[in-house]
Structures are given as structure tokens and as C-alpha cells.
Amino acid sequence: MSDLVWIFISALVVNNFTLSYFLGLCPFFGVSGKLVTAFRLGIATTFVLLITSIATWTLNTFVLERFPYLRLLAFIVVIASAVQFVEMVIKKTSPALFAALGIFLPLITTNCAVLGLALFQTSRGYGFWQGIAFALGGGGGLTLALVLMASLREEARLSDVPAVVRGTAFNLLLAGILAMAFMGFAGLLST
């Protein structure tokens, strides 16, 4: 049980997907303009991560043992289907959210965090529940980073930033400072 908790905490803050593995940076900079949208994209991605984790475990256990060279192809096809599924669900249940997420919803397919999760889970040999804990922690960490970044950017919009700094450079520097703050969690695991 305790190893599940550690996997969760580690993926959530210590080895945060976005801020220390640099996974899922496109939405991190692309959709972090508004807090509400950022939060919802985080939740949608977490859901995809969860499906991917289960699918990865199934594939690894029952199919890919004999065909390791098909791993990447199999993963990417599964992820694309999972995203398509989530897209349909969101379109049915919340058309407003569907419109707000726009292009970034199908782009979850090419979100490195999703494929990264499948690859890390494979290379670390996680079992079923460990995979679930990893997906939840990773998704939570991604959402946390998105929400923090969106809040910072909403604040920064009201402050007096020179025009030349605004844009990607400013967001990168913000992310750098955020990542430094997250380094403070590094000591948690070594004990």
C-alpha cells in the first residue's frame, strides 16, 4: 500500500510531469491563459491518462510480451482512441467546454505526458494498481501545474510588464521560477 502512496506523491509533486519531466508543455503554455479552462483540460487529460494506464497494462501483460517492437505503435493507437472517446463524451455532456478547449482537445493525443506515462510505466515495470496510482498522480500533478501557471498568468496580466517581455519568453521565465519552487519537494523522497 505504502508504495502506491509514494508513487502517487512522487508523480504529483516531486517528479511533476510538467515541471521536472517537461511532459505536456504544449497545453501548459497554450491553454494556461484562463484558470477555468486550464483546470478542465487538466481533468480531461487525467482521464485520458487513467484510460491509457489501464490499456498499457493490458497490452503489456497480454500482447506486447511477444512483440516488443510494436510497443510504440500499439501505444499511440490506443492513446488516439482514448482521446477520441473522451472527445465524444465531452462533446455530449458539455458543448461549452468542448468549444473552450478547441484544438487542444484532439491534441491530447500528441501530449507527451500521455505517451510518456505509457513508456515510463513500461520501463519501470509497474503493475495494475501501481499504474493507476501513477496515472492519478501524474494527472493531478499536470492539473496542479496548469492551474498554478494559469493563476500566475491571470495575475501577471494586471501587472506592469514591459511589452518586449510579454509572450512566450515571459511564460517560460514564469515556468522556470515555478519549477524552482517545485524543486523544494525533492527532499521528500530520499528519506
Partner: peptide, 12 residues
């Protein structure tokens, strides 16, 4: 990791 963000930020 933070260095990556900072260096690219400064270059941009």
C-alpha cells in the same frame, strides 16, 4: 529542470 525553462526564456 528549471534551468531549461530559464535559458530558453532568456534566449527568446
Amino acid at each position: 529542470p528549471p534551468g531549461g525553462f530559464l535559458v530558453l526564456g532568456v534566449i527568446l
